[in-house]
Nucleic acid binder design. Structure first.
Ligand code: ZN
Length: 249
DNA sequence: GGTGCCGGGTG
DNA sequence: CACCCGGCACC
């Protein structure tokens, strides 16, 4: 067994890019009420909604310097409603801001080469890094050059309208290989080359799942947080079955 | 089977 | 545009 004498409980805001960490539950609740929910209630008019927007994290005070490997976010709905332990512990908010490799200047991740499948297993280790938008842009930025226009404009103008979000959405190309060019002429005569073992031989079974479909986000989204019965509390994107825009992880 | 969400549909 | 849903990959 470990001698985990010194353990600390913090509360992390789950709102979009906030990531604020406070040491008391009352503090994070007030933060969420005033900042995100926009309520100017004085103290205790909590209808419990702000409980959805933060999570409790435990961390050892020893390992906090380098490890940060023992952080287990648990749902705050079961935490004791009693008064939180009075331990201010300030200046702990952005602990992981200077923890990035100095190489990535603009791009989200270094992401070597184009053809490496980048089999990233056990992603929970770097979940705590909490980059601003470490999300979408898991695909190489090389235009697949399919359907090249007749005019020879080689340089692909990207039109960097807003540097906020550009979605490449590298979908797998339509590989519906049906054997040969189906000729719809019904009077083919007699040679109806019916079946010649239509085995789609050019479709790898595991077509790099990391790239094909954006590797679904980790954290809970509105649907799981609020539940089906509270659907009107979801964000609009979740209601329309689009990518959640409240809990972007 | 539940969940996140892309693509496509409707007004 | 807002809004909804089928279907799919992922747990
Ligand atoms: Zn949402």
């Amino acid at each position: 067994m470990l001698y985990c004498n010194s353990m600390k409980v913090m509360f992390k805001c789950l709102w979009k890019n906030c990531g604020k960490v406070l040491s008391t539950a009352a503090g994070i609740q007030r933060h969420i009420r005033t900042i995100h929910l926009g309520r100017n209630c004085d103290s205790d008019c909590s209808d419990g909604e702000e409980d959805f927007y933060y999570s409790e994290i435990k961390l050892h005070t020893d390992l906090v310097a380098d490890g940060l490997s023992s952080l287990s976010p648990v749902s705050p709905s079961i935490l004791s409603p009693g008064p939180p332990p009075p331990s201010p512990l300030p200046s702990f908010n952005q602990l992981s801001d200077s923890h990035r490799p100095p190489q990535s200047s603009d791009v989200k991740e270094p992401h070597a080469g184009g053809t490496t499948p980048l089999s990233r297993s056990a992603p929970s280790a770097l979940y705590l890094i909490h980059t601003d938008h470490a999300y979408q842009a898991t695909a190489p930025v090389s235009i697949p050059s399919s359907s090249s226009n007749s005019s020879g404009s080689a340089c692909t103008s990207f039109t960097p309208s807003n540097s906020s979000n550009f979605s490449i959405s590298w979908q797998s190309p339509p590989v519906t290989f049906t054997g040969a060019t189906v000729s719809p002429s019904k009077s083919q005569g007699f040679g109806e080359q019916r079946s010649q073992t239509i085995a789609v031989l050019s479709s790898p079974p595991r077509a790099t799942t990391a790239l094909s479909r954006k590797v679904r986000g980790e954290g809970k989204k509105c649907r799981k947080v609020y539940g089906m019965e509270n659907r009107d509390m979801w964000c609009t994107a979740c209601r329309w079955k689009k990518a959640c825009q409240r809990f972007t992880d």
